[in-house]
Amino acid sequence: MNILQSISVNKQFANHKALHNVNIDVPTGKIFGLLGPNGAGKTTLIRIINQITGPDSGQILFKGRQLESNDVQNIGYLPEERGLYKKMKVGEQAIYLARLKGLSRNDAIKKLKFWFEKFEIQPWWDKKVEELSKGMQQKIQFVVTILHEPELLIFDEPFSGFDPINANLMKNEILNLKENGSTIIFSTHNMASVEAVCDNIALINNSVKILDGGVDEIKQNFKSNLIECQYNGDFQRVSALIEGKINIIEHRQNHTTHYLKGELNQTNNEFVSLILPEATLTSFNEVVPSMDDIFIKVVENDK
């Protein structure tokens, strides 16, 4: 089942089209990566989901029905452009933002206590925001976003501004949230994090969705029979065996160890059994394109 669907959503700004017939399906309980270059329309789509702006045409379905204004209580949103009131105290501000999401004051305090303890940031409660570092502020924003335990969480570039330790902490928290049943939409340029956490993705370029599906499925579709292997043995004899079966792209030799990279025109198994009589295989692997490669390839082709 899909928790969120957009059905041919269009949005036009004065001189440019931000979204053109965009359809996406976000499956419940998964982490969904919304990818695309800058200015592709990701933020506009996210703003439409958060009802910050409305689409010119098209529909947003939430749990199978039309999105309603009350649904903001079931959505948590961490925008890319995010900040806090500088002069306000951390605790007070967190309570305020939680109450705007519909939590009562007491619930907000109770839940905040829990998260502040979990992240060991209780001493910040009475500090003014301006006294905290940027990373510390990001942590508080993260807590405020997830505090009302929404079914759908939207993170726009969640790791920007975090050091690697805290970024890892956040990544684990996001995976925890998924374990606990939340659905997460994850908008980013950071392809490494997409591979690490996302189950599904959609790629938007120039206001059009050009690719979507499961991460593994997409990778399979984009692989091009590229392999790498290392063996010990005589290069000439091995070459004779595999003549015509592989288009060698790269060959390196270190003493008796050879490294081969190339495109196969037979299955992996056939290739391996072909060279085994002459070579002692030390490693073999299929070169699966990284999301980075796919991203660049797809966007370049789209031009």
Binding site: N50, Q51, I52, S69, V72, I75, Y77, L78, P79, E81, R82, G83, L84, Y85, K86, L97, L100, K101, Q141, V144
Partner: peptide
């Protein structure tokens, strides 16, 4: 402050 987008995702 860039808090605006956080708030207007909760209120109109």
């Amino acid at each position: 402050n860039r808090i605006i987008e956080v708030i207007i995702s909760s209120v109109k």
